[in-house]
């Protein structure tokens, strides 16, 4: 006689065993997904912290101190301005524009990982995914260090950046995008003015500086530059910069602003 109860028990064990591999695969996949999510989440957070730690104002101080210490000869100042502004331009790009891009990259990485995880050869791919993650993170850090590579990546990622920031600074980002394509100082000046209007003086300072670097004869750019400095509580530096500019350009508008700043009319 057949022991049906025993057989039923065995059958249940068999069923559980046959579903076990699938259950394991699902569990391990979700764990991997969770780990990658946490991993990138913390990465973006540390990046944001990193940005906060290095404000551009410090660079401004240092650079202008250097100018002060040197001879006030017109040509030398212009050269200095160019020299100084170069590294600033780069750090500015790196500090301000990289984070959003990394974020976009992370999203792309995650998307890649998810497509990979649907692969039938599960065990092997999970290993590969981990390797990929490691590789990707290492390239991320390398990008931060190698400033020269940054512009290239900017070009590739441009559409993504605008989508990211559109919510807050729609038109400015559009202009920045166009500026990056053609390096037209009129656009960077526009951006500087816009940022100045929005009260984002660090940004307006930066874009005015970029504009001055491309073309050092734009009066409006020097004015925004000086105004931003005042707003950033660098009144003395603003006065100094304007004086140097007036010496080379004899700009009456610059002189007017200089007087206003000196008299405390412009704050």
């Amino acid at each position: 006689m057949l022991n049906i109860h025993e057989l039923e028990k065995q059958w249940k064990i068999y069923k559980i065993k046959s579903y076990l591999p699938y259950a394991l695969i699902i569990v391990s996949l979700s764990i991997i997904a969770l780990i990658t999510y946490i991993f990138y989440d913390t990465q973006t957070k540390t990046r944001l912290q990193h940005i906060k730690k290095s404000p551009t104002v410090k660079h401004v101080q240092v650079n202008i101190k250097k100018i002060k210490a040197r001879d006030t000869n017109k040509t030398i100042i212009q050269l200095k301005a160019k020299k100084i502004s170069k590294p600033k331009l780069q750090t500015e790009k790196q500090d301000k524009l990289l984070p959003s891009m990394n974020f976009m990259k992370n999203i792309q990485h995650e998307a890649q990982i998810y497509t990979h995880s649907s692969d039938p050869i599960k065990e092997k791919t999970t290993k590969r995914i981990r390797k990929k993650i490691k590789k990707k993170t290492s390239t991320n850090t390398i990008e931060d260090v190698r400033i020269k590579e940054v512009p290239k990546i900017h070009k590739e990622q441009k559409p993504d950046i605008t989508i990211e920031r559109k919510e807050t600074q729609n038109d400015i980002m559009d202009i920045i995008k166009r500026f990056k394509k053609n390096n037209n100082p009129a656009l960077s000046l526009f951006v500087a003015k816009k940022y100045y209007e929005l009260g984002k003086y660090e940004q307006s300072y930066n874009y005015a500086l970029i504009t001055n670097q491309i073309n050092s004869n734009i009066e409006a750019s020097w004015i925004i530059f000086a105004k931003s400095l005042v707003k950033l509580n660098k009144k003395n530096k603003a006065i100094f910069t304007l004086r140097e500019y007036i010496k080379s350009s004899h700009s009456s508008n610059a002189e007017l602003l200089l007087n206003e700043i000196k008299s405390g009319k412009f704050k």
């Binding site: 057949l2 057989l7 039923e8 065995q10 059958w11 068999y14 069923k15």
Partner: peptide, 8 residues
């Protein structure tokens, strides 16, 4: 049933 028979 088939699986049970196969186990047996």
């Amino acid at each position: 049933f088939v699986e049970m028979a196969a186990i047996h």
